[in-house]
């Protein structure tokens, strides 16, 4: 996690974010499902997941959404503000997989100070798990550039 918050001026379209690798375990999938109050059986009960045609419990959407946010705030720093997250979901994340999250700045809005980051999370077995964008507001240090 970057403890120094990025300034809006310091970021350019095309900047790449440091990739994040997430080891996916049953503990993570179940722990995050429960911490997100999502008790749908397929996220904690292997038998229920198998009845849905998957071999094991799989990550819930709230967790994927959470990783989208964490990935971008890790880079932007604690004084940034997440304004929105869009996700398209792909293949499920299962225990034993490794998901690599990558991202790139795709747009900047000078009026609002909001930066859009395109994010992709791919697992090593089935490929694309999540893709989308995070809109994040960065502080503008208007005067500093004038010094």
């Amino acid at each position: 996690m970057n403890k120094e918050t990025l300034q809006y001026q310091d970021v350019a379209v095309g900047d790449k974010l440091p990739p994040l690798e997430i080891d996916i375990s049953s503990s993570l999938i179940i722990g995050a499902a429960i911490a997100s109050r999502d008790f749908t059986p397929v996220h904690h009960d292997k038998k229920a997941a198998q009845e849905c045609g998957l071999p094991d419990v799989f990550m819930n959407i709230l967790t994927s959404n959470g990783f989208m946010g964490r990935f971008v705030t890790d880079w932007a720093g604690p004084e940034s503000t997440v304004k929105g997250i869009d996700i398209k979901l792909g293949a499920p994340n299962l225990p034993g997989f490794v998901m690599t999250v990558t991202g790139e700045v795709t747009a900047k809005n000078d009026d609002t100070g909001v930066v859009e980051v395109g994010v992709m999370g791919e697992n090593n077995v089935w490929g694309m798990h999540m893709g989308g964008s995070v809109r994040i507001e960065l502080p503008k240090s208007d005067q500093q550039g004038e010094v």
Binding site: L28, A32, G66, G69, R70, P78, V82, P139
Partner: peptide
């Protein structure tokens, strides 16, 4: 669980001094 070390979520002292002015919840 998310491995999120953002001090704005969990570090009261830091959060109070920051522009957030106190603990916030992860927007997600």
């Amino acid at each position: 669980v998310m491995g999120d070390e953002n001090p704005a979520y969990t570090d009261e002292e830091y959060a109070a001094k920051s522009s957030k002015g106190g603990i916030i919840a992860p927007p997600s």
